[in-house]
């Protein structure tokens, strides 16, 4: 799956409009092996933006009836930043139970897992996977994939902001001097132990520098991060 996610990030990088983003989200459905993938963004002015795999009929109905007002996933995630299994949300209201039944009838799935994303200037987005696995299988699935889901969620959001506002608005975050040091040594073939020793830091601290650099570079793993940093000229070796 890691190789496919790396290729996905390359394709995502090439997306230039909402159609490109939607195509990328469809690919993600296959890679993650779930029934649906949904990216849904709301900016501070209330403008909505989505790339998803739900049926057109369900999307129309959701918009027409303004279901975002009562959807526990949107309401429950709006003010949080930790990922959440839909089972942990409050579905006890009458409107919410009816909404859930309708969503299931439209093929959304009985299980869901959503990653809230807080962007710049009050922008808020949700990245969701939904499915029909059993409770037990779903718990195992989300536990195994939560990190990939969180990273992909943030990379899709980054791309969506770029499309919406232009690349200038979302400049790639600069690597810190420590992160450049760490990646440079890894690129030179040092083991993590050797790299940590030559920087006089613990391996744990080194790992965190690499983790932070990986996110800033939009990469799925260390090798991918090193390749991206090299190709963009951030590392001088």
């Amino acid at each position: 799956m890691q190789g496919r996610l790396e290729r996905f990030l390359q394709d995502l990088g090439a997306a230039r409009d909402l159609d490109g983003l939607t195509a990328a989200v469809r690919t993600l459905r296959d890679i993650f092996g779930v029934d649906h993938v949904v990216y849904h963004s709301v900016n501070a002015a209330g403008g909505q933006y989505a790339a998803l795999t739900y049926s057109d009929e369900w999307v129309r109905r959701y918009i027409d009836l303004d279901y975002a007002r009562i959807d526990p996933v949107v309401q429950g995630c709006f003010k949080r930043f930790n990922p959440v299994d839909w089972k942990r949300l409050d579905w006890s209201g009458k409107a919410q139970r009816a909404f859930l039944a309708e969503a299931i009838a439209h093929g959304v799935g009985r299980q869901g897992f959503s990653v809230p994303i807080r962007g710049p200037n009050g922008q808020f987005a949700l990245f969701t996977v939904s499915d029909n696995r059993s409770d037990e299988d779903w718990a195992a699935y989300t536990e195994a994939h939560v990190r990939d889901l969180i990273l992909v969620a943030h990379y899709v959001n980054q791309k969506a902001l770029e499309i919406e506002r232009g690349t200038d608005a979302v400049a790639m975050r600069a690597l810190s001097p420590r992160e450049i040091d760490a990646l440079t040594l890894i690129a030179m073939g040092y083991s993590r132990g050797q790299a940590a020793e030559s920087l006089s830091i613990s391996e744990h601290t080194l790992r965190v520098y690499i983790e932070s650099a990986r996110f800033k570079l939009g990469a799925m793993n260390t090798t991918h991060a090193v390749a991206r940093a090299m190709s963009s000229g951030m590392l001088v070796i």
């Binding site: 969180i150 975050r173 810190s176 520098y209 996110f215």
Partner: peptide, 14 residues
């Protein structure tokens, strides 16, 4: 504390 960490630490996993 960026002087202690050697620059901002940024990741959705941290």
């Amino acid at each position: 504390f960026a002087d202690l960490t050697g620059g901002p630490v940024v990741s959705p996993l941290i």
